[in-house]
Each structure stands twice: as C-alpha cells, then as structure tokens.
Design a protein around this nucleic acid. Structure first.
Length: 507
RNA sequence: GGCUCGGUAGCUCAGCGGUAGAGCGGGGGACUCAUAAGCCCUAGGUCGCAGGUUCAAAUCCUGCCCGAGUCACCA
C-alpha cells in the first residue's frame, strides 16, 4: 500500500521479573510480520524493556541492588528470549538509556512550553506501606484495600505535573469515528470509544515521592507510563533523527489487551500534543491461559518460554502460538496442546510430506529434480496462495495465513496418495512419475517461502534439503511462480525428520 | 455493582438471518513412498435457559443463569 518502511513495535516489557511465554508471544508476532514485510521491502522492528517505576525500585531493593544494577542484570534474559525464539529485532531500547531519557525530558519541556503540561495538585488517599494512591471508593472501612495490608491511609496532597489529556477527548472521539479500524480487534475499539464517551481527566505525569525514573526539571520523576510510551519515538532518535523521519508513524503497534487504554487514548493524545501523527494501527492481542487458568506466579503455572523452546523447538512454539487462536482472542496453552500440534500439523502433515517426497525422489530419480510437467493441477490451484497468505498477514490474521498454507500441505499429501508414484515407478510411466515428483518438490519450495516468516529455521532446513542455496527470501509475487524450481537440482534428504515425533509426558 | 467478551458435536473452536460446520479424538476402509505418518468414509449435537421480532434465528431484541476479563493515574 505504502512505500514507507514497515515499522512495527512490541510493548517494552516491564522488567520487574523474568520473562514468560506471554512476552514471547507478542515479540514472535512482531517478528513474523517483520520477516514477511522484509520479503517486500524495508522493515524495522523495535522492542525493549521498561525499567523505571516503583516496582522495579522495590524489586531491586529486595535483591539488595541499586535499580540500575538490577535491571542491568535482568535485561540479558529478555534479549536471550528474543534470541531463543529467533526474534530478529532491529533495535532494543531500554528506558534507562541516555538516548531515551534525554528525549523524554525534551518531550516534557515541549509540552510544558505548549501549555499541555501544567503544575497542579495531586490529592488522594495514600497508603505508605504499599506506596499507592487509592480512590476513596476503593477503600475498605477507610483502610488500605490491599487484603495483605489493611493499614490506615492518609490524605496526601502533592504538587505534580499534569498532562492536559481531557483537552484531546473530542479530537480522540472524532478520530475514532473517522478511523473505525485504527484500534483492533473491534472489541478493544468499542471499549475505548466507551471510555472516551465517559469523559477523560487530565493525567498526572510526575511522581515526587519516587526517584527511580526520568528526573524532571524542578524535581520528581516522570510517570513511568508516559516515560515508557515515548520509547516508540525516542528509539528512532526523535525529534531530528533520520530514522524518525522515515519510520514514523508506525504501521503497527502490537500490545496486550490490558494496556489498550494507554496506547489508544493517552499515546495518540501525547503524539498530537507534540504535533505528531498517531500510528496507523494499534492491535491488542489476546491473553493466553495455562490449561484454561490464568497464568500467574501465585498459581505457580507460569510457562517458562525457555523450557518450552527446549522441549518443542522454538519454531514449533512459534507455530503453535500463532496457529492456535485468532490473534485478537484469548486462548489456552499447555504442553500437551503444543505436543499434539507439533506431532500432528508439523510432524505428520508437513514433516512427513518433506520426507516422503524427497525419499521417493531419491529412490526413483537419485534425488535429482525432474523437468517440470507441462501443466500442474496443484500449480493451478495455488496460483493465488501467496497473495492470500500475504493478505492475511497484512491483516494480522496469522491463524488464517497458516490455515491457507496448510491447504497446500494437504493438497500435496493427497496428490501423492492419488497419483501413487510407487506404482508409476513399477509401471515405468516416467513422464507421470516425473510430474508428481516435480510437483512435490516445487510445492515444498513454496512452503519454505510461505513458512519462512513463521518458522525461519525449519523453512531454511527445508530449503537446504531441497538443494537450494541460502535461505528462502524475496518477494513472493516473484518467487512463487509454479515451475520456479530448476530441473536437475540435487536434493539432500536429511537423516533426521524435520519434526521428530515427541512422546507424551517427557518430563 | 457498571461495562465488555464468551456459553455450538467427547475436546478446542468457526459460523453470526435462509435446510447445523472444521480440526483433534473415536469408529470403519483401501493402500505402502513416508516420522505406525498420509489418503478415503464416518460424528446425527434441544447451537446456556425463557420469551419476543421475522415468511425464516446459533445468527436480531429483552430477561435470566453460568464462566472470564475489566473499571481511569494499580508500570
């Protein structure tokens, strides 16, 4: 649609603990999109860590470390998570980096100068133990509502900086009406419209009782959420960076549904206050539950993304996460579910297809790709497959894209059964044998291209087994022409299956 | 309590105004190139409950029941 490079962001992950599978989910989705868009042109993916705020300060204190030392120690795990799942980000920003904090102060100064940031009083009930402000309505018997606290609260009144969010309410509402698809899925869009219709209050954007954050002129630190949101432009070297000029506004910003309010109300308002355009699309994906239950530390059912990758392979987990449910919906995850999809979709359907195809080619034709047939039913049936998958991906329909790709997997498996190459071989019907063998290899080449964004390593393995150099790359509109695989190519069937069967209850 | 989203075949879900669908599991069959994989056939489920609108409702409206999420400075 646009020649503008594709810029996609994940939320920056709050670094108060270890990463879990939910964090991987967003990053993987962003990576798949980025890899797809890279087949067509320039693309840029940003991720990172949100390192300020009270909880980080507390976690660090509990560990006996200074906040910076604490986050320095943890950030490696988040980068390792990306590495483990083959998430190839173009930049990884930490909110404690100077390039970020400097720009955050610049934002503050500009908004202040413009009058969208002003000094006001922040009043409310404060629990010293929890370091939290509570609404009057939330108090239980006039005490802290936290069941583990229940201490007396005190009325606190502080001078703080406010952002004139309410001023942007009408503009936001109008923008929503004019851009009915800018927040997706529709559920999130509707909720945010309802929130806007309920009215907005100005946002307190400073904290005087906290020192772990971006220091503001005159004291206090910036509210961590505003600090965090700004990463999407500070990483691009706003205001003057070349990257900022070419990449902003982002084409897609992926978020979890729980943080939609910040990204679809506060964020565009802040951008407008800076005279910048809002991103094209905010997509709030669903939450995953562990076997139907919410994942939480207290339940002890949080899935360790590193363990999952070790057991099933990073590509299989990537596949599962995007295949299991529509991107906007909640879904349930568990080892057994991943295992069944691994063995079924990946092992039986895809992996076995690779193996039976190349094994027959090896046995009947010494592994040499034969001449393409004059015409191919399968080739004709899938002419538009690449474009269909592309359309799904552009709409963030990962599940639909994978289902479409599996149409080709199914078609090839069926074709083998129907055309029975083993009989053709015995009957010495060479032309027909060549035709089915060619179709299989060519189909595998297509699959390698189509699957590369989803399962980069496995797609590359398929590519190698087909005897092709490098990795699948390039624009599908050019690469996916039936007959593209050169006759005479020497294929190399691997000894090991692409997706070796995984037995139940393996640890 | 308000709001949002769900409640459809054993399981996971799609359909969202016009004769109930898919995948998995289960059952049956023909084959053998292949990871005991693949292929073909097979599921007769009051579409949460009760009303209503309509020629016609899983599909729209109302009420209720059940489950989940969310409720503004909680990063």
């Amino acid at each position: 649609m646009s020649e503008r490079p594709f810029y996609v962001t994940t939320p920056i992950y709050y670094i108060s603990g270890n990463p879990h599978l939910g964090h991987a989910y967003t990053s993987i989705a962003a990576d798949v999109l980025t890899r797809f868009y890279r087949t067509r042109g320039p693309a840029f993916m940003l991720t990172g860590t949100d390192e300020h705020g009270q909880k980080v300060a507390q976690a660090a204190a509990a560990a006996g470390l200074a906040p910076q030392a604490w986050t320095d120690g943890l950030v490696g795990k988040w980068k390792a998570l990306c590495a483990r799942y083959e998430v190839e980000y173009d930049d990884f920003i930490r909110t404690t980096e100077e390039r970020h904090t400097r720009a955050v102060v610049e934002v503050f100064e500009r908004l202040k100068k413009k009058g969208d940031v002003y000094l006001g009083k922040y009043e409310g009930w404060y629990c010293t133990n929890d370091e939290t402000f509570w609404l009057e309505a939330k108090l239980v018997d006039g005490r802290c509502p936290n069941p583990e606290c229940r201490r007396e609260v005190q009325w606190l009144s502080e001078d703080n900086w406010f952002f004139a969010l309410s001023k942007y309410r009408d503009r936001l509402l109008a923008y929503y009406k004019e851009h009915p698809h800018w927040v997706r899925p529709e559920r999130s869009y509707n909720e945010m419209v309802a929130t806007l219709e309920g009215g907005l209050e100005d946002l307190c954007i400073s904290r005087v009782n906290l020192d772990w954050g971006v220091p503001l002129p005159g004291g206090g630190v910036m509210y961590v959420w505003l600090d965090a949101l700004l990463n999407y432009i500070t990483a691009l070297e706003w205001p003057d960076g070349e990257k900022f000029r070419t990449l902003w506004p982002a084409r897609v910003q992926l978020i979890g549904k729980e943080i939609a309010r910040f990204h679809t109300i506060i964020w565009p308002a802040v951008l407008w206050a800076l005279d910048l355009p809002a991103p094209d699309l905010i997509f709030a994906h669903g939450w995953m539950t562990k076997d139907g239950e919410k994942m939480s530390k207290s339940r002890g059912n949080v899935m360790d993304p590193f363990e999952s990758a070790d057991r099933f392979g990073a590509d299989a987990v990537r596949y599962f996460l995007l295949r299991e449910a529509p991107f906007g919906s909640d879904f349930s995850i568990g080892d057994e579910k991943i295992r069944l999809r691994h063995n079924g979709d990946l092992g039986n359907d895809l992996g076995n297809l690779v193996r039976r195809s190349l094994a027959m080619l090896e046995r009947y034709r010494n592994g040499l790709v034969p001449q393409p047939p004059d015409s191919s039913d399968i080739g004709e049936r899938v002419v538009d497959l690449g474009e269909r998958v592309a359309q799904h991906l552009m709409a963030l329909g990962f599940r639909d894209a994978l289902e479409a790709i599996w149409e080709l997997v199914g078609a090839l498996n069926r074709a083998i059964d129907e055309r029975k190459p083993w009989e053709l071989h015995k009957a010495e019907r060479g032309v027909e044998l060549d035709a089915i063998l060619y179709d299989c290899c060519e189909g595998l080449r297509w699959l390698a291209h189509l699957l590369a964004p989803f399962m980069p390593s496995k797609a590359a393995e398929m590519w190698t087994q087909l005897g092709l150099d490098g990795k699948p790359a390039g624009d599908w509109r050019e690469e996916l022409q039936w007959g593209g695989l050169a006759a005479g190519t020497q294929t190399r069937l691997a000894t090991e299956p692409l997706f070796p069967r995984i037995e139940p209850d393996a640890a």
